[in-house]
Structures are given as C-alpha cells and as structure tokens.
Design a binder for these strands. Sequence first.
DNA 1: ATAGGTTTTGTCAAGCTTTTGTACAT
DNA 2: ATGTACAAAAGCTTGACAAAACCTAT
Lengths: 284, 284, 284
Amino acid sequence: VPGDGGAVRIGEFARRVGVSAELLRAWERRYGLLQPIRSAGGFRLYTAEDARRVGRMRAALEAGMSAAEAARAACEPQPGAENLLAGGRDRMLTAITAYDESELHAVLDEGLAAFGLETLLRELLMPVLQEVGRRWAEGLLEISHEHFASNLIRGRLLSLARLWGRGAGPLALLACPPGEEHDLSLIAFGLVLRSHGWRILFLGADTPIETVLQTSRATSPALTVIAAFRPERLDEHVPALLELAETTPLALGGPGARPELCAELGARGLGADLVSAAAEVAGR
Amino acid sequence: VPGDGGAVRIGEFARRVGVSAELLRAWERRYGLLQPIRSAGGFRLYTAEDARRVGRMRAALEAGMSAAEAARAACEPQPGAENLLAGGRDRMLTAITAYDESELHAVLDEGLAAFGLETLLRELLMPVLQEVGRRWAEGLLEISHEHFASNLIRGRLLSLARLWGRGAGPLALLACPPGEEHDLSLIAFGLVLRSHGWRILFLGADTPIETVLQTSRATSPALTVIAAFRPERLDEHVPALLELAETTPLALGGPGARPELCAELGARGLGADLVSAAAEVAGR
Amino acid sequence: VPGDGGAVRIGEFARRVGVSAELLRAWERRYGLLQPIRSAGGFRLYTAEDARRVGRMRAALEAGMSAAEAARAACEPQPGAENLLAGGRDRMLTAITAYDESELHAVLDEGLAAFGLETLLRELLMPVLQEVGRRWAEGLLEISHEHFASNLIRGRLLSLARLWGRGAGPLALLACPPGEEHDLSLIAFGLVLRSHGWRILFLGADTPIETVLQTSRATSPALTVIAAFRPERLDEHVPALLELAETTPLALGGPGARPELCAELGARGLGADLVSAAAEVAGR
DNA sequence: ATAGGTTTTGTCAAGCTTTTGTACAT
DNA sequence: ATGTACAAAAGCTTGACAAAACCTAT
C-alpha cells in the first residue's frame, strides 16, 4: 500500500510503522515527535509524512541514540546535511523498503537539483538499484520492492528522456537483447549521452537482434549499444551480433558484456558502469 | 458488462457492490458518501458512478483508514487531466501570491513531467511571469512577489541548465544588455536551444556589449543573442551592436527588440516570445 | 550506518570507541579529554567528533605516550584537508577562466560531498568569488568570467535552497537594497541559516526598502537581513531603514554594512563574512 | 571497582469517550 | 424508508511502575 494522502488512526498506523500505539503516544507526549491532527472526536489522524518521521526515529534508535536524541534527530528537516549523497542513498533505500512513493520522488527531486543528472545517476540511482538487487538476493527485500523501485525510477528517467531523439548530434541506437529486461542502466546511458548533445533512439528491453539490425540499417547510427546483465543473453546471439558489428559501430555494455566477446566481435566494451561509459564515449 | 447508464435500487446495488443496504444508508447519512436521485416513490436510484465511489470507499477502508476519512477520500474529485495548463497557471499565481514555495515547486514538477520542458516554458512559466508583471503594474501584487517568483524560478531553470555548454553542437552566446535585469526568458531560450542539441554560453543580465563582443571573438558562436525588455536598453548601444553584428551572426529578442533596429543592424529579429523563437532557430 | 550528527550516551559511545565508560569518565575528569554536553537530567551526550578524539587518544597511547601526553595530543586540532580546499579553489579559478562548466560543477559536487554545505560555502565558494572580483578589478579576468561564474553558482545555490521556506523554525527575511545586484552571499547566508532549521523568505537583489518593510509587516520575521557590498547602497536609505528597524529585528551584512550605521539604526551588524555570521546567528 | 541514588523509557491499567456496523421499531 | 438505539471495537488521558542505564563519590 503506497503512502497516499489518506489519514489513518493510531491502530492502523502502529501496525504500519511497527511501533505500539502506547509508545507512539508516549513519544508524542514526551518529545513531541508527532503532532497528528485530530478527528472531531479527538482521535489522532496520521499521515505518510508522520510514518517517515517514525522511520527516522527508529533508525536513530537502532543506531544507538537515546530516545530523546533520536526524536530530536528525527524532527530535523534534513538529517544528512553532512553527506548529501550517502544520506540520499539511505533515504532512497528506506523509501523503497516502505513503498513510500512520495519520499522516493522527493529524494530524486532534491538529488537532481543538488547534483545534476550525471552525478545523480552515478552516485545515487545506480548504487541504490544495485543495493536493492543485493538485498533481494539475500532475502532482505521482496521482489516487489525491486519492481516498485524500478517502475517508479523508470518513469522518472523516461520523463527526462522526452525528445531525446531531437536535434543534430550524432545518433546512438540503444537496445537490450532478447530476454534481458533490465533497461534502467541503458536509459541512464542514453540520458548522459543526450546531455552531451547526442540523439538517442531507444529500442528498450527484450529486443530481437534482428530488429536492432534492421533499425541500424535504416538509421545509420554513430554508435549502436547493446546492454545485458547476464552473459548468456549476448553469447546466445553471436552470429547476429557479428552481422550487426559489420553494419554499424557496435558497443556492448553492462555486467554481461564479457571482454572476450567484445574482442571477438570487434565491438567496443563499455564495462559494467554505463553512466561512466557514456561520459567517456561522449568525451571523444 | 452491466452497470451502464441504468439506475438500480438499493437492494440490487447492495448486491453488486457487496455492501449491505443498511450500511449504504448509514454512509449516506453520516458522510454524504452518495446522493442518489430518488424515484417518484422515494426509492434510491444508484448509478455506475456511485458504484465506483463505493469501490474507492471500500479500498480506502481496506487500506486501514477510518470510515470518515475513507469517505472523504472517496468523494475527492479524481485527478482528471482536464485543464491542467489553465489550472497550473492559476495554481502558480495563487502560490506566488501566498509566497508558497512548496506549491510552486509542485506545479513546476508536475508540469515538467506532464508537458515537458518546452510546453512548460511556453504555456505555463512565461505567461505566469507576464501576468505577475501585469498585476504588479496594476498594484495587485507587490514587487516582493515578483522577486520571490523570479528567484525561485531562476533557480529551477538554472538547475536545468546544468552543463548546457557541453557537447559538440553549435554554440549560442546569450546576454542581456547593460541595465537589463530580466534574464529569465533568455534562460528559457537557452534551455530550448539546448534541448535541440546546441551548446550555450550564458553571460546573463546586465552585460556590457563590449564584454559580449570580446567573448564572441574568443568563442566564435554560431549565434549571439541579446535580449531586452525595453527598447532603450538596445537603442543606447547601436554603435557597439553594429560592431558586434559584423563579428558574429546576431539576433535580438524580447519586447525591446524593435524590428527597425534589427533591420538597421542586419540582425535577426526573434520577437517577444523567445521560447517559440528558440524552437524556430533550432529548426533550421 | 554512519555516525551522523546525533548524540549518544556513554554506554553506546563506549561500545563504539572500545573504551569502558569508567575510563571515559576518568579521562574527562583528569585530562578534560572530552567535554560532552549533558541531557536535562545530567547524562553525557557524545558526538562523532568526540569519537574521533578518543581514536586519536588511543592511537597516541598505543604509540607509547603517557596518558596525560596522549590526551594533550588528542585535543590539538589535527591538520585537516587544508590542501583539498586550496586545491579546490585553484580548480575553480581555472575552470572559471576557461568557461569550463563541467569542471566547475565537478568541484562543487566533490566539495559538497567532502566538506558539507557550510565549509563549502565558507572555504571554497566565497573566497573564489572574492578572488574573481579581485582579478577582474586588476584586469586579469573579463566581466564575462564573473557573469559565467555567478550564474552557474547561483543556479547551484538556489537549487539547494529548494523549500527553504518550509518548516516550523524562525523566519528570516533576506533582501539586497536597491541597486545592489550581488545576492550570492545572501543566498549563502540563507542556506546556512536553513541548515539550522530557520525558514527563509528571499527577496533577492535590488529590492526597494519599502517592499522589505511591507513584506516584513505581512510576515513578522524573527530577523530581517539586508546585505550590500557598497556602503552607499545602505546610506542612501537611512530613513526607510530606521522605520524598518522599528518594525522588525534588523541585521545588516556584507562589506557595505558600516558598524556606525548599524549602531545608528540599532541594527545587528553581521560583518562581511555572511556565512560565519549565519552560523553565529543560528547559534543563539 | 563498588555502592547507593537518579534519570530515562517502554509498558500497562483504569475509567471514560468516540466511532461504526448492525438491528429494530415506526 | 426513516430514525433511533445499541454494543463491540478502538481511542483518549492520567498515572504509575520497573528495568536498564547512568551519575557521583568513595
């Protein structure tokens, strides 16, 4: 259930945030942690922002602070003025864990404003997505968390990608091979390239190599990029990729792009960090 | 699929939506959830829209909200993307009048996501800034409102302008003449040009023509743009502008760029609407 | 979880630094190694800086020094990242000279991550801006360099200023007097105040005193700050400033705020270094 | 290091009120 | 259909309590 604007009473709220109603009332009385509005009859009504504050309180307690200090810290507007990037990563992970849409949007907004696109992608988004994957592998997060984060972030990135095919710069053709659904880092790659003035034609996830080949013939891109997380996704298609490499300047990226395969195809290897790779590609 | 325009009585309606007739009546009495029209004999007649509203009510209850809160949530108008632009302009003006930062940011965020940069600039931002100026001239707003709005919007636009000098596209050199402090539409011009792949070198408000000349000589831009609101700001500098026009392709824009002056200088006239002008410039 | 600004009690602190609570108390009593603030009830509250000091103490002990000597050594201010700062300043100046947007952003990004906002402002940004002004006065830089740097930095600072009017802290009203266009240090002042929980209403450059007066009456700020570089900008408006000083707690800052004028107006003098002044104002 | 007193904080209980689904009488 | 009643569930406030953590002084 996402954090919508609806207000809930203390019982449901306690269940959501995992803190007993009595303790919530005590924190309110003693430290003024929350100041929920009241119903006509006097019942407390809590919002999603209150839930975030309780989350910060619990994190501070976990970190060993006394309740009084934790409450003070949780009430401060920006806990991480010290280290914006690390703070942003923490906030994103917390928001993802809680399916907290508004908070996730807020972190992205602030990060974009404070650091700009490229740093946001490299230092915030990609590390967080990687960490989400890791935690899922360890059973600390559900796959639904990963889906929630992916979809929201994809929406944000795609809204930044609006009109990225426009203009007069060199053209890049981007695609993931069949079976590969992780297109976020490829979108990030495209955005960075775009910020250097390139035009982007994005075919997205799960694209047959044959399709890439045809599109490449039709548009003559300055670079065609295929990105995959798992090597098999590329290894399965060596013949088609060979043909592609003869048609267009080809680059392979993502963790699945083995250097040996790149050498065999005569393709450029972009490595796993596509954001940095994009800056490098554009720099030449 | 049933439930088109046909109206049904409470028994059938209760069965369809899965809520007892008594409870439906209680919700109507206590929270005004539904206002069914009555038959001649006084029977309640429910529509498909009523069924949807009950659905929202049940969903909100399921999400843990109290009945009162759930009813309020269910009655709220759905986010219909009707007159988003007109609504956005109104919201912005209201927010500016109230010095409401959050709301102003929210409108910009939503507008950017919904319409993209160019439409946002042309249809929302520039008209609103113009209207703010008009209301100030009529004494309906203080100059402090204009300052508040300008500073916030300048921050937003400049954050979008990050790294707009990067890449390999044609270079545009932008400046306002001495005494001219309104640089927002010039920033907007630069952003649109950038979205078409151009590189931007922005000198901003109150820049001596001599400085533009030197910078122009040093960087050889594909276009140099001088924007002013008042004709005097340009008319005062005809000799320097003539020299500039010999050095670089020159364009004059903003309400202060008289066609006669453009003709005299052999400069391109961009008109008052710099956002549209930018799209046109880039289109060639 | 990194050690953020939160304060912890002696038990948790002892566990973190690996020194028993009794020994910590003894070091405090005997050598004044730490001077933790106390809770209302008298409990010691330790910070991350205290932890670093204990670390130095242990290292000194390990190196064979006596406890008294080790404590003295641990209390001395350690040679910090002074070189990083100087290097950052050089990089910024070089980037400005070359109109190198990317590099300028990169320095700011790294500085923000490494030093936090306040140090970045005080030790990097303000000195660099001052140096740019100096070099321009000496003819070593064009005014276009100053415009380029100002616009880029203004964008960065305003993007950090997002939502600085929100919250529950005291309100500060900030403005530059008529004719004064240098608003960057005033923005910096606002950012530091904001990081201490204040709310900011920013009117910016070139604001009529009359406007400040009206806004001040409408919003009742806890402090109104007028900043100017040149004394004339303030001296011209003594009558209006006198009226303002009767309406609101007033402070004058920037190189143009002569102590005599502050005394005459009964206003607080903030000095030329507005970043330090903000920390001081917030400290009360 | 121990002893004896203090502060902090999570939890619980008693007595009363509000909310809300359902039932009943007209 | 309407209006009233009712009872279970959930909430509110005040107050108290005890374990854990902490303080000073010896």
